[in-house]
Design a binder for these strands. Structure first.
Lengths: 337, 337
DNA sequence: ATCTGTAATGTAATCGATTACATTTTCAGT
DNA sequence: ACTGAAAATGTAATCGATTACATTACAGAT
């Protein structure tokens, strides 16, 4: 393996100069720089990244902890993160947890071991105290998820507002009995989506009913089960707002199974606008998060933190959008291609 | 940061002994070992991974190149890889290419730079010559995809056989005009799925027709488009075998759009058994690959290669399974929950 | 008690880039 | 031409674990 001394010898300079050419080209005279670059070329020199990491105690790698990479909302955010990261010559290590908190903690070891320089969390499950300790010790950004109390750099949408809009849309279709299948209640995001739903009901003077609110865990299966529960109520809902698209699809399939037709007998709205929402039949009306952009911004925030650990922990709120498809019975209908 | 010398000092031994306790415990006397372990505990010592990587010129990290991580078939394989990897204390770096060959080559730099110790490829797009050079220079395993000519450790299923079965299933339902929407023809896997289809037609004395074979690229969109093409033929097919589930769903939706009913007017079989195939309406009949197991085995093969670069490059072929759902009009019908 | 061979432990070089500090070069200003 | 400051380059220490080689401890044989 060619190393820096070899280049230095050939170019007739010191290793310090070679190193500077690579990391601080402007601090080296043009003439010398060209000599060095030529030698690098001639020897086909590639710096030893591991030595560099060791010496600088940095890896140019960041960790992204994802609850479920197979969910397109997360893979899109990751795509955004990667795009911005690779521009700045950063690598992205994916920590897929399948919604298992233990695995999250496992991945955090990578931070402690300095195998990664920073962290983007797409999951809000980690304990508050640990989170608040983390954000003081390492560059940390939350994306999509968020927490209160602790001040952490965050990119997200306004979940209360978008859930309000989703529910309002159902109300405007004339529905009065509207169910909600929520996400797991240990996450603030789930809580806010529920709040948006509640606020919409209140705003339009619709009585709340505890029976109509069911807790799921963002999986298709819980959407299916909870919908079954809702359907055996003495007075079942005529519409359902599910806290994500997978659960919405679960709810739709449960209703179909019971012989109901969506949207005629039951209107459904989801959340996230995952790829299959437009492929599914009926197309799922949903709230679209600007996922790729969210990833871009999350990475930009992290880069700033990496550069200056004291950089302000701002929260950036992006706009979401209601996408109307067939599942809610609106007359405005998108094609499913 | 506590380092090895600190532990050594406290335990009253040399750093060599501390290092041995960590890497070769059996070479250290029980008495000494305990002293050292106690000191490690007491000081809460964590070895500097970067220094270790540098010194050993190994990172205990492997790279997995994936065409599209949002596709559940790939995320399942990755899950299998990760499970086996983490047992052996290996990290998995995910290289998602979105089917872009350029990005594949980018990721290969990680190998050259020794940032990863080995590679599992889930894509068969890389140039033969490069592949054959790679496999001599680095531990390399192919999973799901495979190539001929070059001898590389591989885990896969028998795509010809399973496609034969899929097509045969349609034939046994009485279909005589069966279309095929293939994968991109630069991949051997697509080619084999086409071969299986052709062999089944031949076996059952059904005339082939070039018109009925359309090339897609494994995306929903091409499935949709190619099905549209098939439907405007003077004599359109009554059944279609698509080389993956996404294209099968595209085909189904295209037919629905034209007012056809699946499976009554058109029977469809897909490939891969992605998660959404059972959620889709109608449930997609498909070939299930043992994806997680495939990942496990791929990682095991790679570990063997990492251990001994001259380890035999065997190809392991796993069993696939035909999963019958509603889309093919069989009377044996699975529920879609 | 002495010798021998093996097991256990220690000493110190090593991996290769980075960088604090030292030295030399350059050049503007007189 | 000379001075002094700034720019360019060089010297050598440094990061922290690993490991080849050297030394010591110890058990068993004589």
């Amino acid at each position: 393996m060619v190393k820096m001394v070899d280049v230095a010898r050939l170019a007739n300079v010191s290793t310090a100069t070679v190193s500077r050419v690579l990391r601080n080209p402007e601090s080296v005279k043009e003439h010398t720089r060209l000599k060095v670059l030529n030698s690098i070329e001639e020897l086909n020199y590639q710096p030893n990244v591991l030595a560099r990491h060791f010496r600088r105690n940095k890896t140019n790698t960041i960790l992204v902890i994802v609850p479920n990479i197979a969910n397109t909302i997360f893979s899109q955010i990751v795509r955004g993160i990667e795009a911005t990261a690779s521009e700045k010559n950063f690598r992205v290590l994916l920590g897929n947890t399948n919604r298992d908190v233990e695995k999250e903690y496992d991945f955090l070891n990578l931070l402690h071991q300095r195998q990664v320089d920073g962290l983007i969390l797409l999951s809000g499950k980690i304990d508050h105290d640990i989170l608040s300790e983390l954000k003081d010790k390492y560059p940390l950004v939350l994306a999509s998820e968020y927490v209160d109390d602790v001040e952490i750099a965050t990119v997200c949408i306004d979940n209360i507002k978008s859930s309000f809009e989703a529910t309002e849309h159902l109300i405007k279709q004339g529905h009065k009995r509207i169910g909600h299948i929520s996400g797991p209640m240990n996450s603030l995001l789930s809580f806010d989506r529920l709040s948006g739903y509640n606020q919409a009901l209140k705003e339009y003077h619709i009585d709340e009913s505890k029976d109509l609110i069911r807790e799921g865990d963002f999986s298709y299966e819980t959407g299916y089960q909870q919908m079954c529960e809702l359907l055996i109520l003495p007075e079942p809902p005529t519409a359902v707002f599910a806290a994500n698209d997978e659960m919405a699809m679960g709810a739709i399939n449960a209703s179909k199974k019971k012989g109901l037709s969506v949207p005629k007998d039951l209107a459904v709205v989801g959340f996230d606008n995952i790829r299959f929402s437009s492929i599914f039949d009926p197309g799922v009306t949903t709230i679209a998060q600007p996922a790729v952009e969210m990833g871009n911004i999350a990475m930009e925030l992290l880069l700033q933190k990496l550069d200056d650990p004291d950089f302000e922990n701002k929260r950036i709120t992006l706009k979401s959008e209601l996408i109307i498809r067939e599942s809610c019975g609106s007359n405005i209908v998108e094609t499913s291609q």
